[in-house]
C-alpha cells in the first residue's frame, strides 16, 4: 500500500473515532435518542475488511453497531449523522435511527437489532449474487455474542451446503452485551466453532489494520473465487460500554487499560510515524481537519435538516405505489367455488 493510501486510512480511522465521539456528545445533549452503540476501539476491523472488499459492489450487512460500517461501505457520513438525529435527510429517512442505517445505493443492506438476524439475510444476499452469476460477495459483520443464536448454526450449514459467496466477519470484543465470552460460549475461540460446518476459518489480531487487511484479503479472494463461505474472527475490544446506558461494571479497569494500549489508531499512527509516512504535525493537522469536517459539514447538515413530516407517518410501510393489477380493487360478481 502506498503512502497516500496509508495516510488516507489513518485519517479515516481518526474520522470514525471522532464521528462516534461527536455522536456521543449529541446523545448527551439529547439530540440523538434511543439506543446508541459506539464502535470506538474496533475501527481497524470494519475499516480494514472493507478497504480490501469492493464497496458499492459487494453487499455489506451488520448488527446495531453500524455507523462506521455504513460510512466505510460508502454511505455519506452526513446522512448517517442525520439518521442519528432522526431527520428526513437521514440514511433511512429518520425511520430507522442509529441501529438501522441503510444505503442500498452502495449495497449497504442495513444494521439490525436482533442479534444474529443478519446471518441468514447475508446468506440470502449471497444466494442472489450466485444466482445472478456476478462476482459480488456478501460480507456479514457480527459480534461474538451472535454466534450463540440458532441462526449462526442454521446459516453456516446452508451457506456451506450451497457454497454461497458470503464472508462472515466475527468481531470478537469478548463481551456479549455485559457477559464475558467464557461465561457465554463453551468454546471461546469462535473460529473453531465453524469447523462443524466444513467452512474454512481463521483468527487474527483485530487491532492492527495491516493484519486485518492481509487476512481479509485472503478470505475475500477465497469467497470471490466461488470456493464457498469463509469465517474470519478478529480479536478486538470496544472502548465504551455496550450502549449509552452501560456502566461497564462487568470488566476491570486493568483490562480496559491493557486494551487501550492496543488502540488501533495508536498502533497504526506509530507504525506510519516510524516508517516516516506521517509526522506528529501531520496527525495534528488530520485531527483538526476531521473535527472541522464533522462540526461544520456533518453535524451542521444533521442539525439543519428537516424532521420527517407527521403526515408521512404511514409512508414506507408497504409499497406506496402498488400496481393495481396485483392489489385490486376486486371486481365483485366473479363468483367461484
Amino acid at each position: 500500500m502506498n503512502a497516500s493510501d496509508q495516510k488516507r486510512l489513518l485519517r479515516e480511522m481518526i474520522f470514525y473515532r471522532r464521528f462516534e465521539e461527536r455522536s456521543f456528545e449529541a446523545y448527551m445533549e439529547r439530540k440523538i435518542g434511543g439506543f446508541l452503540h459506539l464502535y470506538s476501539g474496533q475501527e481497524a476491523v470494519a475499516t480494514g475488511v472493507l478497504e480490501v472488499a469492493r464497496c458499492g459492489h459487494d453487499y455489506v450487512i451488520t448488527g446495531y453497531r453500524d455507523h462506521v460500517h455504513a460510512i466505510k461501505a460508502g454511505a455519506p457520513a452526513r446522512e448517517v449523522m442525520a439518521e442519528l438525529y432522526g431527520k428526513e435527510t437521514g440514511s433511512s429517512r429518520g425511520r430507522g435511527g442509529s441501529m438501522h442505517i441503510f444505503d442500498p445505493t452502495v449495497n449497504f443492506m442495513g444494521g439490525y437489532a436482533l442479534v444474529g438476524q443478519p446471518f441468514p439475510l447475508a446468506a440470502g444476499l449471497a444466494l442472489a449474487c450466485k444466482h445472478k452469476g456476478t462476482d459480488q460477495i456478501a460480507i456479514c459483520f457480527l459480534g461474538d455474542g451472535a454466534n450463540n443464536q440458532g441462526t449462526f448454526h442454521e446459516t453456516l450449514n446452508m451457506a456451506a451446503l450451497w457454497k454461497l459467496p458470503v464472508l462472515f466477519v466475527c468481531e470478537n470484543n469478548l463481551y456479549a452485551i455485559g457477559t464475558r465470552i467464557e461465561r457465554s460460549s463453551a468454546v471461546t475461540d469462535q473460529y473453531k466453532r465453524v469447523c462443524a460446518y466444513n467452512i474454512p476459518s481463521s483468527q487474527h489480531d483485530g487491532q492492527d489494520i495491516d493484519v486485518v487487511m492481509a487476512a481479509a484479503g485472503d478470505a475475500i479472494a477465497h469467497v470471490r473465487a466461488g470456493r464457498g463461505p469463509y469465517f474470519i474472527e478478529f480479536m478486538t475490544y470496544r472502548q465504551r460500554g455496550h450502549s449509552m446506558s452501560d456502566s461497564n461494571a462487568y470488566r476491570s479497569k486493568d483490562e480496559e487499560r491493557q486494551w487501550l494500549e492496543r488502540d488501533p489508531l495508536k498502533i497504526y499512527a506509530e507504525r506510519l510515524k516510524k516508517a516516516k509516512v506521517v509526522t506528529d504535525k501531520d496527525i495534528a493537522a488530520m485531527e483538526k481537519s476531521v473535527l472541522n469536517e464533522i462540526e461544520n459539514d456533518i453535524v451542521r447538515f444533521a442539525e439543519e435538516s428537516p424532521e420527517p413530516r407527521v403526515e408521512d407517518l404511514n409512508k414506507y410501510c408497504l409499497d406506496d405505489q402498488p400496481d393495481p393489477r396485483w392489489i385490486g380493487p376486486l371486481a365483485q360478481g366473479e363468483q367461484h367455488g
Binding site: 441468514p120 439475510l121 440470502g124 444466494l127 442472489a128 440458532g150 442454521e154 450449514n157
Partner: peptide
C-alpha cells in the same frame, strides 16, 4: 436444484435467506 431449493429443517434461517435474497432483487 438452483431454483427449486430443498432446505434443511431450519425454518427461521431459510426464511431469512429468502428475505435476504429478496432484498437483492429475487
Amino acid at each position: 436444484a438452483e431454483r427449486i431449493i430443498d432446505t434443511p429443517i431450519s425454518e427461521n434461517s431459510y426464511t431469512g435467506i429468502g428475505i435476504g435474497a429478496s432484498m437483492a432483487g429475487m
